[in-house]
Design a protein around this nucleic acid. Structure first.
Lengths: 119, 119
DNA sequence: CGGTATCCGTTTGGATACTG
DNA sequence: CAGTATCCAAACGGATACCG
């Protein structure tokens, strides 16, 4: 990349890189939905699966690992119980996503209304 | 789904469905980036490809078709030119995504800063 | 330039069974 | 319950060639 290309891609549209960064971490079909579902409080594995709906255990498991790795979710094992109870809860850092979640949810609502009226 | 389940999934967390709706339409790796890149004004195919970066012609072509179908983008053919010139521009409806794009971009910026400081 | 067609490896993700 | 293992189908997506 030469200096003129940099001018084009960074000066003219500095929003592309941040959006790319964001999608890299919270993009995909499930991550935001898992986070949103935990907004109401901590939940157990099968509970999340039921709440999110349509996600398989295998996929949910890997999503939760990534979310933990990126600091959005904390995995809590209540030891000394049999069978073991595991809970997932949001970290304070996940609060930083409030605006994103709100914007997305309200856009989704608006869009669905629009489609309904068009039909 | 019985009525009690409905209470759980709709009343306790009515945000999941809208988020699902939104991701269905503007989710994926590229759609928001293509829209963001067109914010600065209409562009031609290869221009978009260069600006977005990392997207192949085949994929960009199919993304643009979906975006057109969903009313975010308008395809404009300047006829009577040889070779034909095609431009893509955002529709007024794509303005409804301003908040989403802004929230995502500013979160991305914040997150990148956070990672940089942690290293 | 603005794409489309084809090929093909990679990734995603569902279903099912299984384990501690 | 909280996952993991395996298998397998479908989707994604890059590379390349090609067309008007």
């Amino acid at each position: 990349m030469n200096s003129e290309d940099r001018v084009i891609s960074e000066e003219c549209n500095g929003v592309l890189t941040p959006i790319g960064d964001a999608l890299y971490v919270i993009g995909g079909k499930w991550k935001l939905r898992v986070i949103a579902s935990l907004k109401d409080g901590s939940m157990r594995f099968n509970e999340i699966q039921r709440t999110v709906g349509g996600i398989s255990a295998r996929v949910l498991s890997s999503e939760l690992k990534e979310l933990e790795l990126n600091g959005f979710v904390k995995r809590i094992v209540h030891a000394k119980t049999a069978p073991v109870v595991v809970e997932y809860e949001l970290t304070p850092y996940s609060d930083s996503l409030t605006e994103v979640l709100h914007a997305l949810a309200s856009w989704g609502t608006m869009h669905r209304d629009k489609l309904r009226k068009e039909r």
